[in-house]
Every structure is written in structure tokens, then in C-alpha cells.
């Protein structure tokens, strides 16, 4: 997520020294997430919307749906588009202008995590094969970046999908009634969450704060649902050993269980 590295070298050195004895600045364990806070219905014109906070990191994810033509290579499936905006409002590191690499990568990793896991039942989004399907837009906005926007956005995307209701569609007049909602988005029983593991020194950590993200030598994002991996992306230039990759997968699997428990609890409380 970093545009310019503004964490001083001494801090990065300290982070490394601390990690050697399994310590982090905020007292967390290497595989411990910050407190996860989810709020729903933060934007009432969206088909579904949530605010996700991980410590001081905050994102808003909203879902819109519209009726569109299917893509030529998938006439029997609905469309999905995931877009992220890393707002300059959320960090002095984000600048105005056309989307930069980090913004595009974030949107694409979330897109693949959702798409490849099969959480959306795309075939059920068809209104008329080859002509009319539902297009689902997942839009991600950063509000405050204190590291790990990606995992926060991924949690937000999954929860927003579960809460969203499709607008009504008047087939005769070919009109989407955006102010009337009825059916839920057809979902399957997988629950993909992207979990990003960072390597600092010889240690693997989850949910880095900004300074830790700056200290990170390499990262591996694992889109996982109950032990099944459906998307991965290794970022940054330092190599990873096989055993580190499989250790990362074990951490992701364990983390998924913890996070999904919290998500389920939130969904039940609604």
C-alpha cells in the first residue's frame, strides 16, 4: 500500500529487533489481528454498505447493482466489477489523479478473491441469457490508512455482499427501481477473506500497522475460505521460501477462522 516510505529507518530497525523476540510495538502477537469493528448501512442509497475498522484503519465498502449486457465470453453469468479509491482524505501518502498501482492492485485482488471463490452465484444473476444480467459493483473507499487496507476491504466486501439486496427490476419497462429492494444477492456458502501475511526479517506477521507495512520485505495475500485457497498474490521484491509460504497458509487458515467467527457474530446481531 505504500506510495512513499515515510517511516524513519530507526523505527524500521527497531521493528526488526523487536520481532526477533516476537514483540510488536502495540503488544500484539505476530499472528494477532487488531480489533475488528463492523458497522452496517453507512450509506443508504447503496444496495448494501459497511464500514470496517481494524484499529485506526478504516474503509467503507458499498454495493450497487444495475442491469447490463453480459460479457460476450459469459452470456450465462452476471457481471462483477470491483473498484477501489485510495482517497487523499485517508492519508497524506495518497495523491489526487488517475489511479496508481496500489489502488488498481487492491481492487483487482479483492475482485479475484470474490470471483474465483465462487461466493457469488453468477448464473442466478441472469435475467435473459445473452442479453440482460445483473451487474454487481463493489466499491471500496479508504477513510483512514493505518496499514492493511486490503484485508479490511476484503472483509468489507464479503459482509456488504451478504447484507445487500438487489433493487427491483421492471422487465416490461426495462427499468431498475433503485429505491425498492427485494431479493438478496445469490450467494453460495463459501466465505472468502483475503489475509495478507508480511515478512519482516525472518518473521511472518498479520495485520500490519503502517510502520510495519513500511518495514515489510515481502507480502503474500491469500484469499481463503475454510481451508480452500482461491486467490493468491505475492507482492514486493524479496523472495519467499517454500516453508514460509506454507507457514503463511497455516496462519491464514487460522486467522480466517477467527475473523469469520467475528463476522458471523456480527451478522447474527443485525
Amino acid at each position: 500500500m505504500k506510495n512513499i516510505n515515510t517511516t524513519p529507518d530507526v523505527t524500521i530497525k527497531k521493528i526488526n529487533e523487536y520481532l526477533k523476540i516476537n514483540k510488536r510495538f502495540d503488544g500484539r502477537k505476530t499472528d494477532e489481528f487488531r480489533d475488528l469493528i463492523i458497522e452496517k448501512d453507512v450509506s443508504n442509497k447503496a444496495e448494501g454498505s459497511v464500514r470496517v475498522k481494524l484499529g485506526k484503519t478504516e474503509v467503507i465498502v458499498g454495493i450497487k447493482a444495475d442491469v447490463a449486457e453480459p460479457y460476450p465470453d459469459s452470456p450465462d453469468k452476471g457481471n462483477l466489477m470491483v473498484t477501489a479509491e485510495l482517497l487523499p482524505l485517508s492519508s497524506s501518502r495518497f495523491e489526487l489523479g488517475p489511479p496508481k498501482f496500489d489502488t488498481i492492485e487492491l481492487g483487482r485482488i479483492i475482485d479475484r478473491g470474490i470471483r474465483e471463490s465462487g461466493v457469488i452465484d453468477f448464473k442466478k444473476l441472469v435475467i435473459k441469457e445473452g442479453e440482460k444480467v445483473w451487474a454487481i459493483f463493489i466499491d471500496i473507499y479508504s477513510i483512514n490508512d493505518d496499514g492493511n487496507l486490503l484485508d479490511a476491504a476484503g472483509i468489507g466486501a464479503l459482509v456488504a455482499l451478504k447484507l445487500a439486496k438487489l433493487p427491483k427490476y421492471n422487465e416490461k419497462e426495462e427499468k431498475v427501481l433503485h429505491d425498492q429492494h427485494d431479493k438478496e444477492i445469490p450467494l453460495t456458502d463459501v466465505n472468502p477473506i483475503p489475509i495478507t501475511i508480511h515478512k519482516i526479517g525472518n518473521k511472518l506477521i498479520v495485520d500490519p500497522v503502517k510502520e510495519e507495512e513500511d518495514a515489510s520485505e515481502t507480502r503474500l495475500t491469500i484469499g481463503i475460505s475454510d481451508g480452500i485457497i482461491s486467490s493468491m498474490q505475492k507482492g514486493n521484491i524479496f523472495p519467499l521460501k517454500d516453508e514460509e509460504i506454507f507457514e503463511a497458509i497455516d496462519i491464514a487458515d487460522k486467522t480466517w477462522k477467527e475473523l469469520f467467527k467475528k463476522i458471523e457474530k456480527f451478522l447474527k446481531s443485525k
Binding site: G62, K64, F137, Y141, D179
Partner: peptide, 13 residues
Amino acid sequence: NMNSFSVSERIRP
């Protein structure tokens, strides 16, 4: 800047 989902019909980010 308006969020794409802040209005009834999605606006392009």
C-alpha cells in the same frame, strides 16, 4: 468527491 454508491444510480468513481 462523491462515493459511487452515495446516489441511487451509481456514479463512476
